[in-house]
Design a protein around this nucleic acid. Structure first.
Length: 483
RNA sequence: GUCCCCAUCGACUAGCGGUUAGGUCACCACUCUUUCAAGGUGGCGGCACGGGUUCGAAUCCCGUUGGGGACGCCA
């Protein structure tokens, strides 16, 4: 059995879409799970849609996600070049061979004529198909017209009959050739269309598993016809279900849906994103949900792929991201969260590592961090109504009393660390037969001006420092004393 | 419109003739707690519909409905 070879073949037309990344991931996994080879090929045959910088984005994303390719434009390989715009001669040569073999023919129809045909069809509510106008031009006339420099394209010749393709996921699908259009394979600029370049390259690069989105499923019979006309072996097809925004719309940048770059920019972890999209169309059958790339490679099989489209659920991604954030070791989290923490905290007397330790346990996405901790920099204005909490059994009166006790006790604390603060306050709590919650809530409110905070009262006090803590307590007492 | 594909809780899914239809997210309740999270416990909620086949259908077949995809000198 030949080794499995898959390829990721993106067009450099913009950012990395979630659907693209998932396709790349599955292609990588199909290859690696069977000890195979993963290839990167750039499909840049449409000069008009080329976007500067998108090839760099492709490299960056693949590298970031650990989807290392064995062959590609940047790393080379035995079947290069791996950029389609550099393979022009190869396509031209193969187009000639295909014409000679009867699988294609030259077409001299102008774009205007085709457009006219298309418009007429549309007016009659019919599906446009090329009318075969140039199909029967004699060979010597074709040669003469080409010699004269007349513009032409190469079209696929579709014989009568029907084709049954085999897909690893969808099984056998039979299509009558009457449904198939004789599409352009080689454009008048000499560059191939996807239909042609894909077949030629996949064959020449020895791709064993052609993995792509299910939007290509209905044109697969045309590719089979091409392989056959060349006398080539047909590869295995794996058409993947689409990723949807909701029941009726594809996930797409146009609708404002996030790209991979967007998600990373919003504070999602790449491991979480990769793990989440793994599960959008594939499952391990044993209920496991968390996978490192290595674990994915070991667990993956085509049998676990799903046929129906999956809706991208940002809520579940957030949950999963939170799980990943919590599992991060302290140093990694520190490094990742530091920019977000600095965004909220400008003071330089705050131990940012301690802030990070608090915030790590309750962060879903990194970009949520600043809003949770900005009270550390400056105490926000707050309503004294915050001191009234039914569950904690606090009200204006006992809050004021407890804050005064806090002030007294904390003033006496020498070395300002968490242990000392806790010791001082809990000594009072134990002596007063009051719940810790009741006693500490007023302090937490006074220190933060917030109902919800990362960390408890003692932890906030430690981070703020003695002076600031006492000042804020004083301010709380002031709030509670005025009428 | 034509052709192709798909169909289990709101979402992701397990199930491949006999299950009280299972898990995860979300939601709700309770619990734990120095707030909120996290954790723990429980709950809500589903086989699109109609025919077959079968002793027995979520599972197999047909149809209906719904949804998606394709129909470019785009990929």
């Amino acid at each position: 059995m030949p080794t499995v070879r898959t390829r990721f073949a993106p067009s450099p037309t913009g950012y990395m879409h979630i659907g693209n990344l998932r396709t790349a991931l599955y292609e990588y996994l199909i290859a690696r799970s069977q000890g195979g080879t993963f290839i990167l090929r750039i499909e840049d045959t449409d000069a008009e849609r080329f976007v500067e910088g998108s090839v760099a984005a492709i490299y960056k994303t693949l590298a970031m996600c650990g989807l290392r390719h064995d062959e590609g434009p940047d790393v080379g390989g035995p079947y290069g070049p791996y950029v389609q715009s550099q393979r022009k001669e190869i396509y031209l040569d193969h187009a000639r061979k295909l014409v000679a073999a009867g699988g294609a023919y030259y077409c001299f129809c102008s774009k205007e004529r085709i457009d006219g045909l298309r418009d007429a069809c549309e007016a009659r509510h019919e599906v446009f198909k090329y009318d075969g106008h140039c199909k029967e031009i004699p060979k010597d006339e074709v040669a003469a017209r080409i010699r004269n420099g007349e513009a032409c394209v190469v079209r696929q010749a579709i014989p009568a009959g029907s084709t049954t393709i085999h897909d690893e996921l969808f099984g056998d699908i039979t299509v009558d050739h009457g449904q198939l259009d004789e599409n352009v394979l080689l454009k008048s600029d000499g560059l191939p269309t996807y239909n042609f370049a894909n077949v030629v390259d996949d064959h020449l690069m020895r791709i064993t598993h052609v993995v792509r989105g299910s939007e290509y499923l209905s044109s697969a019979p045309k590719y089979d016809l091409l392989y056959r006309a060349f006398g080539w072996e047909i590869p295995s097809y794996v058409h993947l279900p689409l990723i949807m925004k909701d029941h009726s719309r594809k996930l797409s940048k146009r609708h404002g849906d996030p790209s991979f770059e967007d998600l990373i920019g919003a504070g999602f972890l790449k491991d979480a994103v990769l793990n989440y999209i793994l599960l959008l169309g594939w499952n391990p059958k044993d209920g496991r949900e968390f996978f490192t790339l290595d674990e994915m490679t070991r667990a993956f099989s085509i049998a676990g792929l799903n046929k129906s489209p999956a809706i991208f659920d940002l809520e579940k991604l957030k949950w999963m991201n939170g799980e990943y954030v919590r599992k991060l070791n302290v140093d990694s989290f520190n490094e990742l969260a530091r920019p977000y923490i600095k965004q909220a905290i400008k003071r330089n007397d705050i131990d940012l590592r301690k802030v990070a330790a608090l915030v790590q346990q309750r962060t879903l996405i990194l970009s949520d961090i600043p809003a949770r901790i900005d009270f550390i920099d400056a105490l926000p204005d707050y309503d004294r109504g915050l001191f009234v909490n039914k569950k904690a059994k606090t009200d204006l009166v006992n809050s004021r009393e407890f804050l005064k006790i806090c002030r007294e006790e904390l003033e006496k604390v020498g070395t300002w660390d968490h242990e000392a603060i806790q010791k001082a306050l809990f000594a009072v709590i134990e002596g007063k037969s009051v719940k810790a919650n009741t006693f500490l809530t007023p302090l937490r409110i006074a220190l933060s001006g917030r109902e919800v905070t990362p960390g408890g009262a003692t932890e906030l006090a430690e981070i703020l420092g003695k002076q600031e803590t006492l000042a804020r307590i004083q301010r709380g007492i002031g709030r509670l004393s005025s009428n």
